[in-house]
Amino acid sequence: MAKIISTHSFRGGTGKSNTTANVAVLVARAGHRVGVIDTDIQSPGIHVIFQLAESRVERALNDYLWGKCSIDKAAYDVTEASIGDVDPDADRPRLFLIPSSIDVGEIGRILKKGYDVGKLNDGFQRLVTDLRLDYLFIDTHPGVNEETLLSIAISDKLLLVMRPDSQDFQGTAVTAELARRLEIPEMYLVINKVPPGMDTAQLRERVEATYQAEVVAILPMNYEIARVASSGIFVNRYPEHPMTLALKQVADRVMS
């Protein structure tokens, strides 16, 4: 049975999409069929990390939400770009990306008119079935809104990505409490952009005590990922980097 994983952060700029993309690649590499859907419709971006050229995107999640196409028509096989040399006929690994439109008019339309969140839920279901997914990652919009809550409500696991600062600390606490009330079965914390030299053991202890949830990775402030962020998958480029090893821990927890 497919597992649905939502990644969420209270604010933008936490590295949520980068974490999602890299963990999804690691899970796919382990021999799975993985889907990644960008539900951050207001500020899409994960397609850039997967190097999915905008010219290749004929249909996006927005088209599905407006009833212009079925959800599978907005799914792009990015296996070769994100994993490498895989037999095109191989059933596994496979990685699919469902991008949101980067068209400014489309984004404006969503902001103005909204969309049927129930249809989004149907789309998740169809993706799992039609693409025969083992895992579906939902890259959510930062903050708490209807779509975020729906994603959490239907997820098996929730990854909360946060930075060690006061604003994230407070906002993440709200999200974590809402997730509990939605009876999320498993919730993990990823602390990202930790300044060099910070006592990570003390940080872990404080965060776990505050949220009563496991910190599955502490990722340092990392300039390489900032550099690679707009042009590829970090774990591919730096397979032995400590950051990659930490992201593998997240992938292991997703697959456990």
Partner: peptide
């Protein structure tokens, strides 16, 4: 002092 300042209201 950063860790010490992290708290939830």
């Amino acid at each position: 002092d950063l860790i010490a300042s992290l708290a939830v209201d």
